[in-house]
Amino acid sequence: MTDLHDVHALQSMLATYARAVDTRDWDLYRSLFTPDARIDYSSAPFGIAGPRDEVAAWLEQSLSVVPMSMHYVSNIEVELDGDSATVHAQFFNPMQFPGFADLSFCGGYYHHEMVRTPDGWRSRSLREDNLWFVNSPTPPA
Rank of each mutant, 00 (worst) to 15 (best):
H5Y: 12
A85P: 01
W58K: 08
P67N: 10
N75A: 10
A20Y: 06
E60R: 15
L80S: 06
Y17P: 03
R30Q: 14
D53Q: 06
I39G: 00
I76W: 00
V87R: 00
L10M: 12
L10E: 03
F33P: 03
Y29R: 02
H5V: 15
G47W: 10
L28I: 02
A49K: 05
V87W: 05
P67R: 11
T16Q: 11
A20F: 05
A49I: 01
P35S: 04
V7F: 05
S84L: 07
T86E: 12
L32D: 05
E79L: 09
F46K: 10
V73K: 02
N75E: 07
P67D: 05
A85K: 09
V21Y: 06
L80Q: 12
S31F: 05
S42Q: 07
I76V: 12
D40I: 13
V66F: 11
R52L: 15
V55E: 07
D36E: 14
S12Y: 12
V87I: 11
A44Q: 11
E77W: 12
V65N: 01
Y41K: 02
R52Q: 09
P51H: 09
W58I: 14
A15P: 03
M70N: 15
L10Q: 04
L80A: 06
I48A: 05
D53S: 02
D3H: 10
D83V: 00
V65R: 08
I48M: 11
R38S: 07
A9V: 09
P45E: 03
R24G: 01
V65L: 02
Y29S: 01
T2A: 13
E79C: 08
L4S: 11
T34V: 11
T2S: 08
I39T: 01
S42H: 09
V55P: 04
P51G: 12
N75I: 01
G82V: 09
D36L: 07
R24V: 04
S31N: 05
V87D: 04
T23P: 00
L10S: 01
G47F: 05
Y72H: 13
W58N: 08
T2D: 08
L14Q: 14
G50P: 00
S43I: 05
F46Y: 12
G82S: 01
A9S: 11
M13T: 15
P51Q: 13
T86R: 15
D53A: 02
G50M: 03
V87Y: 02
P67Q: 08
L63E: 07
W26S: 03
D25L: 01
R52M: 12
L4F: 13
G82D: 04
L63T: 10
Y41D: 08
D6Q: 14
V55A: 10
S62V: 07
F46G: 04
D83E: 07
L28V: 07
G50S: 04
S62Q: 05
D25S: 06
S69I: 04
L28Q: 06
L80W: 10
S74F: 04
H5G: 08
T2H: 10
L28F: 01
L63H: 09
D6R: 13
T2C: 03
V66R: 06
A9C: 11
V65D: 01
G47S: 06
V66L: 14
A56H: 14
D83Q: 02
P51A: 09
E79W: 08
A49R: 07
S84Q: 14
W58Q: 08
L4K: 05
Y41N: 07
D27S: 14
S43R: 02
R24T: 06
S12E: 11
